[in-house]
Amino acid sequence: MKVNASRTKKQLLDELATLRARVKDLEKVGGRTGPRARGRRKPRSQFRKILDAQDELISRFLPDGTLTFVNRAYREYSDPRGEGLISRNFMELLPSRTRAAIRKQISMLSPEVPVTTYDQRNVGRDGTITWQEWSNRGIFNEAGELIEIQSVGRDITQRKQAELALRRSEKQYRAVVETQNELICRHLPDCTFTFVNDAHCRYYGLKREELIGRNFLSFTVKEDHKNVLKHIARLCTEHPVNT
């Protein structure tokens, strides 16, 4: 009986250990599928919906370029056929001529400089030129090692087109102004030159860089300074021109 009792006790202890192990397993399963876990998943799901609602191209990737996350806009832009992007290297999606510049941008990330921003010019198959502004934020571990990059791209084509149109307009304006024989200049209210045309330079016998930043009163007789300043002071929205 003693042996049997001892054996029975051992069996009970084994069964108890087995039950405890099963309880732990059930607790783990319950932790993954219970209300608390569902509560944790709900904010993640909502966060994903927020990212998918953005027009910006949002992605995360490893330092070697392997994609770990992309939002809806990024998928639609980079993977219109639905071939899948996660675990692919995003460098494969880029023209070969731009890869070196982007690798350089990524290499610049550090705990001291965690964000870099650059403009990217794209040429479509039909020759259409578009522009994107990309902002990369490095994610670092406690040792300061780069472990992941979050990237956000936005379309800035309209802004670039406006800047180009402005530069063209300024170039045309300058071409017209420079061909005039009249002395044309721009200056601040304190009479400091900000622009002079070629005729102005020829008249004073000075180079443009020698005139810009100088006060044009230094080229007039002192007795006229008061009248010149009074003349400038009369300029206003209602009377923008004085002769």
Rank of each mutant, 00 (worst) to 15 (best):
A5C: 10
A5H: 15
S6I: 15
R7S: 09
L12F: 09
L13R: 14
L13C: 02
L16M: 13
T18G: 12
R20C: 01
R22C: 08
D25L: 12
D25Q: 11
G30W: 09
G30S: 11
R32P: 00
T33R: 06
G34S: 01
A37V: 14
R38Y: 00
G39L: 14
G39R: 05
G39S: 15
R40T: 03
R40W: 07
K42I: 07
R44I: 12
S45P: 01
D52M: 01
D52F: 00
D55V: 07
E56P: 06
I58M: 11
S59T: 02
R60W: 03
F61G: 05
F61N: 10
P63H: 14
P63S: 14
L67G: 05
F69W: 05
F69V: 00
F69S: 07
V70P: 05
V70F: 00
A73F: 02
Y77E: 15
D79S: 08
N89G: 07
R99L: 01
R99D: 00
I102C: 05
I102G: 03
I102R: 09
I102Y: 04
Q105E: 13
S110A: 07
P111C: 13
P111A: 12
P111G: 11
P114R: 03
V115D: 01
T116R: 11
T116F: 04
T117H: 01
Q120V: 15
N122S: 08
G124T: 02
G124R: 14
G124Y: 08
R125S: 13
R125P: 02
G127E: 06
T128H: 06
T128P: 00
I129G: 04
W131P: 09
W131M: 11
Q132S: 13
Q132W: 08
S135E: 10
S135H: 05
S135L: 04
N136G: 01
N136D: 12
G138C: 08
N141C: 06
G144Y: 03
E145N: 08
I147C: 13
E148D: 10
Q150R: 03
S151H: 02
G153Q: 07
D155Y: 02
I156W: 03
I156L: 08
Q158K: 13
R159G: 10
R159H: 04
R159M: 07
R159L: 12
K160D: 05
K160T: 10
Q161G: 04
A165I: 02
S169R: 15
K171P: 02
R174E: 14
V176Q: 06
V177K: 03
E178R: 09
E178T: 10
Q180N: 10
N181G: 14
R186I: 10
H187S: 07
H187D: 01
H187I: 01
L188H: 08
D190H: 08
T192A: 03
T192F: 06
A199W: 06
A199R: 06
C201T: 08
L206H: 03
K207T: 09
K207P: 00
E210M: 05
F216S: 06
K222N: 06
N227F: 12
K230W: 04
H231L: 15
I232S: 02
L235I: 15
L235Q: 03
C236T: 07
T237Y: 06
E238T: 10
N242S: 14
